[in-house]
């Protein structure tokens, strides 16, 4: 069994959407990187991602990994946030058949999975239809 450290160290991204913006070319990296893959610069400023965006593509997982079996079917999509950053996350609070490419969404704080009945709960971000 893995320790909690692996989950814990991603908290700034999973909870607060902290990203890094390259001081050279302005590219925004999520999760943050040590070197910009666009221009090679190594200096960044901290930025927080936008919490609204649009669905770029999606699927409905009907055969799920063991940890997610109880939740299937569930939708997962690629979301382009309003600041242009692409993330992948589940799309919830709607029926799978209601999801459309281009649909505006909002990011909410949700439980993503749990490490068994006795393990820690893993939180993170999911997209919900924008009100």
């Amino acid at each position: 069994m893995s320790t909690s450290a692996r989950y814990w160290r991603e908290i700034p991204q999973r909870y607060r959407y902290e990203a890094s913006k390259c001081k050279g070319c302005g590219a925004v990296w999520f999760p943050p990187r040590l070197i910009c893959a666009e221009c090679g610069k190594r200096e960044f400023e901290d930025v927080t991602l936008s919490n609204t965006g649009k669905v770029q593509t999606f699927t409905v997982i009907r055969v799920a990994p063991n940890e997610f079996c109880d939740e299937s079917p569930y939708a997962i999509g690629v979301v382009e946030l309003d600041d242009g950053v692409m993330i992948q996350c589940q799309i919830v609070d709607c029926l799978p058949e209601e999801i459309k490419t281009g649909m505006p969404v909002k990011i909410e704080f949700r439980k993503v999975k749990q490490e068994g009945q006795a393990g820690i709960i893993n939180y993170g971000y999911k997209a919900v239809p924008a009100a």
Binding site: D93, K111, I121, Y123
Partner: peptide, 11 residues
């Protein structure tokens, strides 16, 4: 929803 609890709603 199955992915909601006291913590997520509090946030």
């Amino acid at each position: 929803a199955p992915d909601q609890d006291v913590i997520t709603m509090s946030v």
